[in-house]
Every structure is written in structure tokens, then in C-alpha cells.
Design a protein around this nucleic acid. Structure first.
Length: 295
DNA sequence: CACCAGGGTACCT
DNA sequence: AGGTACCATGGT
């Protein structure tokens, strides 16, 4: 089943490859992925966004919500602070969006993200889905695909089984999180009814979840746009651009982020992250891209 | 092939 | 409160 949308300021490729979701893969001139148990192929041509599902589909709310099609990007960009680096990132990647992902898949994925490259995270997530996800309907002659395994599916595994997916020391974290979520001891569905700080504290109760991962979950799956994940890339960029290369303390950096970037800081963060990362991953030019900053 | 990766924890001053 | 070794794995 096929559906078309007219979109404004939407950069599908940047959005799906910016390290906020880990299950999208190029297929021809489009992108294939799984959203809420449905296989979908997305393709963009100018202002037309085409979505194709494998089976019949009458209600497309799941897709519109995931892609945040109702959000007017210009309303977001207006909230950005005036800054050369940020303006450069927006000029280069205008249309980059924040998705609204499933909280459990997002939490589990970023629990596996610590100290790993994005490509490795994608591999581990793929392993998880293949082993314990449910098969999803795909087009004829297409390779099989699986949904992201629910908490109950992972909660009854052993640490050893999870380690077999190459997640290493993160295995007990994921296992424990799956059990806490299954038991309702951590209610990730209720995060959106809390304020940002309270939701953050709730996530921080999970072992293996620190400030960075909590902010990723709140930004990518709950919709708290002030959540500002600080990873090694962002820390480098902020130190270089706003602190003249000096390495600010965590508290100092936190305060600066809140005061300078404001209520849509997380959105700005995604532009800075994608811009910084896209400058380096094309190893074509051997320019001294990142003079290593002391941490 | 060293180095580092969308970090966090435990343990130390 | 602020610093650091260590964690498991593999991409580049």
C-alpha cells in the first residue's frame, strides 16, 4: 500500500542517518525500516514523501507520528540561538528532523550505545531483532525482517544469550532494564506526563543509564526538545567553539547548554552532531579535520 | 594495527 | 564534588 505526503523542510536521508534510530537501511533510492511492527519503505523526491507498506494499511497515524509530519520546522528553527556554527549546520542540513520513536526500542538501543560506534550499534540491534523479534510482513522476494523485541521477550533471556549479540558488558544493563520495564518498576510510558527533570530522574534509576542516554531517550522518543545529549562529538564541538578549546566541567557545560540553547536545545544539538559527524565520515579529503582536544 | 567509539560505574582523593 | 581505571567489541 502506498501513500504520499507533501512535506516542507524535510530532509529524509539526513533524518534517518543522523544516529537517532538504528534500523534504517538504504534500499534503492529509498530507505527501509520497521516502525511498530510494520515494514515500510520511505522515498523522497523534492517535496513529496512516499511511503510504502508491505500489507494493507488504512490508518497512517503511526507513520505520521514517527516522522513528526505535523511539526513545522521553521517554528523550531526560530527558537535556535544566533550562532555561526549552528547556522552553518542548519544551512548544510536544513530539513533534518527529530523522530518520535518507541520509548522501549529507543531506551534499549541507547543502552547498547555506550562507547560504541553507530555502525556497531546497528549491528547489535539487528542481531537482537533477528533472534527475538517477531517476523514482520515484507514484500514478495524480500529478505525477512523482524520487529524490535518487546521487554518481555528480552526479560526471560540470560546474560549469556544477550552477550552472544556482541553487546559485551552492556548485557546485564539491558537484561535488568527489560525486567524493570516489564514489571512496571520503571514506567517508560508515563514519562511524557512528567516534566523534563522528573522524567530524567526516572530514567536515571536504571543501571547503565546516565545523563547522556537519558537525554537521548527523552529527546528521540518522548519529545522533550530541551533534552541535550552530550556525547564525545558534541563535547568536542562545544569545547572548541564556545570554550576556545578549553574543556569545561560537566556542571559548567550543563549550565551553558541550558542558558544558551534553551527550550529547543536538543534539536539544535542534532544539527551540530550530524554536521560534525558528516564532516569526518567521508574520508576522501585528508584535511586535519579534528585536531584532537584534550578531554 | 593502534586508536577510538552517540558512556557509565565503581572507586579513589 | 571532581578525577580515573575499567568495562567488551570491532570499525576505520
Amino acid at each position: 500500500m502506498i501513500r504520499h505526503y507533501r512535506v516542507e523542510d524535510y530532509h529524509l536521508a539526513a533524518t534517518l542517518s543522523s544516529g537517532q534510530a538504528f534500523r534504517w537501511r538504504r534500499l534503492g533510492d529509498g530507505w527501509e525500516g520497521v516502525i511498530g511492527g510494520r515494514w515500510v519503505l520511505l522515498r523522497q523526491a523534492g517535496n513529496i514523501l512516499e511511503a510504502m507498506t508491505a500489507g494493507p494499511c488504512s490508518d497512517w497515524e503511526w507513520l505520521e507520528r514517527y516522522l513528526q509530519l505535523n511539526v513545522r520546522l521553521c517554528d523550531i528553527l526560530r527558537m535556535f540561538p544566533k550562532d555561526i556554527l549552528l547556522q552553518e549546520a542548519v544551512r548544510a542540513w536544513r530539513g533534518l528532523r527529530l523522530l518520535r520513536q518507541d520509548p522501549w526500542e529507543c531506551l534499549a538501543s541507547f543502552l547498547l550505545s555506550s562507547n560504541k560506534q553507530i555502525t556497531q550499534i546497528e549491528q547489535i540491534v539487528s542481531e537482537l531483532c533477528g533472534r527475538w523479534g517477531d517476523p514482520v510482513l515484507v514484500p514478495p522476494d524480500h529478505e525477512p525482517t523482524w520487529s524490535f523485541p518487546a521487554p518481555e521477550r528480552l526479560a526471560c533471556r540470560t546474560e549469556g544469550e544477550l552477550r552472544a549479540c556482541k553487546m559485551g558488558f552492556r548485557a546485564p544493563y539491558l537484561l535488568e532494564a527489560a525486567r524493570q520495564v516489564r514489571e512496571g518498576k520503571v514506567d517508560i510510558g508515563a514519562l511524557s506526563s512528567l516534566d523534563y527533570e522528573a522524567a530524567r530522574q526516572e530514567l536515571l534509576r536504571l543501571k547503565g543509564v546516565g545523563e547522556k542516554i537519558a537525554d537521548c531517550v527523552l529527546l528521540f522518543s518522548v519529545g522533550f526538545l530541551e533534552a541535550f545529549p552530550v556525547d564525545v562529538w558534541i563535547r568536542r564541538e562545544l569545547a572548541r567553539h564556545f570554550f576556545s578549546g578549553r574543556c569545561p566541567s560537566d556542571r559548567e557545560l550543563r549550565r551553558f547548554i541550558r542558558d544558551f540553547f534553551g527550550p529547543a536545545g536538543g534539536y539544535a544539538q542534532q544539527y551540530l552532531f550530524h554536521h560534525a559527524r558528516s564532516g569526518k565520515k567521508t574520508g576522501a579529503d585528508s584535511a586535519p579535520a579534528q585536531p584532537k582536544q584534550p578531554n
